[in-house]
Write a protein that binds this DNA or RNA. Structure first.
Lengths: 222, 222
DNA sequence: GGGCATGTTCATCTTCTGTTCATCTGGGTG
DNA sequence: CACCCAGATGAACAGAAGATGAACATGCCC
């Protein structure tokens, strides 16, 4: 689970960060609203912890900005003030929960868990694209009612495609997502995996769900 | 994607250039702030990589100059110093991201991708001109509800037209945007592509969306 | 250690795209 | 009205990108 902490108070944010790291979350930190929004738009966090009072762009602005740009990651707001209007403003801006400073760290942890759990319940473990169904919990894949056996790497790649249906997925995107940094981009490994995925997915003679977009990459057709 | 590298250290800049070329970016290089600013104002780059310390005009000046002239291209600043004030100055001057020398090339690449991606996310993925719709995420193009299949180069050219509707697009502009520097301007390649685009876009007998402007270039009619 | 599954590399084949070329057309100008 | 040039057009070609089949390597389980 990846968490972003945005707070201009470096002492506090480093305490939060360390605490979350000990709980085995992956944590990034930013110290103003601009950096924070940038990071949140570029990376797929599972949760954002956001201070209201910050330089450049305050938490409310940042929150609204994210929602306006279609980022739905759950947001936990922090504030030093406990005025009711603030709470209302925060929730209005699109935050999911609210915590008043000062707080006990355990309180924060509890809220974090609650939000992540809620998120996990909201999104079904199944990703459905056309007649393709992928279950992220059981790692089972079906097309229609035919079960499909995939190796780990094949599964990772297909899941990526299914999370971005219709979008052109470049080779670079696949590299970054499924391999580490020392990937030899001259190899045709990706072509080979596409080939295998296709042969498993499109058993019946219909044309492939994974389309080639020459010079760009591939696309999973919904 | 076209990238401009501005750095007076010729060794470093040639390394950067070669690396980016291998990633299939189109790269120009300048070695002082004056040349750099000139190129950046004349050409439509998608990203500028800019060293802070340079002769004639340093990176900060150049950055401010560009922003003052309405150039919004994302800027990645390089510097040998890692003082916090420098970072602040750079971002204040209008830079979008920051990288401290020395850096691993992969780090540079990651930032470049992030900036380009961010750029892509801020603008809506759909460009609409009349009944023409182009989706930059999926690379799908439609006229009305008829889907249009384009090759890479055709797509690049049409996108350029759609980003400049009603504007006279000269051959030179197309050359610079869709080809590298060793383009043979005596060839009629561009005419051929216009021909193909027209035949794909204007399937029904209506008159072409791409108008010829004799002696000047072409124009996409909204 | 043998055998199986998965990940990776390699060589070859196929298809498509980018480019060139030769020829045709029509508008503007003297 | 005739000429000329910019642009339009259709076809052909060559190289690149991708598809494919098989071999090779590696690690894991029994």
């Amino acid at each position: 689970m990846r968490i972003l902490v945005v707070d201009d108070d470096r002492r506090l944010s480093s305490i939060i960060k360390r605490g979350l790291l000990e709980e085995a979350y992956a944590v990034d930190a930013a110290h103003d609203g601009e950096d924070g929004q940038y990071l949140a738009e570029v990376n797929p966090y599972d949760l954002i912890i956001l201070d209201i009072m910050m330089p450049k762009r305050d938490g409310l602005q940042m929150c609204r900005g994210l929602r306006a740009n279609g980022v739905n990651t759950p947001i936990l707001m922090l504030t030093a003030r406990d005025a009711v209007e603030d709470r209302v403003k925060g929730l209005d801006a699109g935050a999911d929960d609210y915590l008043v400073k000062p707080f006990a760290f355990n309180e924060l942890l509890a809220r974090v868990r609650a939000l992540l759990r809620r998120e996990g319940m909201f999104k079904s473990p199944e990703i459905v694209v056309g007649d393709l169904v992928l279950n992220t919990l059981t790692r089972e894949v079906r097309r229609g009612d035919r079960a499909i056996e995939l190796t780990t790497k094949e599964y990772v790649i297909l899941e990526y495609f299914m999370r971005h249906p219709n979008v052109v997925v470049t080779r670079t995107m696949l590299e970054e997502h499924a391999w580490d940094y020392d990937f030899d981009s001259m190899s045709n490994l990706i072509d080979v995996y596409i080939r295998r995925l296709r042969s498993k997915i499109d058993a019946d003679g219909e044309n492939s769900l994974i389309q080639t977009v020459r010079g760009a990459g591939y696309r999973l057709k919904a």
